[in-house]
Amino acid sequence: MNGFKDIEHLFRFAGLFVIAILVFLVVRGFIVPKSFGEYGHYRAAAIPQIAALPLHYAGHQACISCHSDIQAVKSKGMHAGVNCEACHGALEKHVLDPINVVPVKLNTAVLCVRCHAASAAKPKSFPQVNAAEHANGIACETCHNPHSPAIDAGGTK
């Protein structure tokens, strides 16, 4: 028994460790949400919460259900793969109330250069211009139809 007396303090320190681990596990049990890890490294209950958030974007299908004429032009041009709301912005409210909520007319002199301003980081095949030299402040739609921008593909000159 005397032998244990001389190592008793080591057990006390080890006991501190065990207590710390137990406290950690208890706190973890309270803090970590119950649904954490159900599907992956996140809280599964977050999915219905996020799904219940109000929508802002209506989606491409909603746009073309009314604007089939624009879709007909767009589908033949270089912007066929560009979603309507990528340029026009989130328009779920317009879809719900098309009469009263009307999208603002876009300023193409500002809008187009967001993608088409010349930059060394873009692939050479991507159409890009130095806007000041190319248009000198004139709105892009003066020459290009934004829905099908290539001039020889039906754009208004």
């Binding site: 007396k5 001389d6 190592i7 303090h9 080591l10 501190l16």
Partner: peptide, 19 residues
């Protein structure tokens, strides 16, 4: 800081040294 143990016998300190 003693964690309630005041045993500083030669043997206990010897064990401390080895641990």
């Amino acid at each position: 800081m003693t964690l309630g143990s005041s045993n500083i016998s030669e043997r206990a300190l010897n064990i401390d040294e080895r641990v």
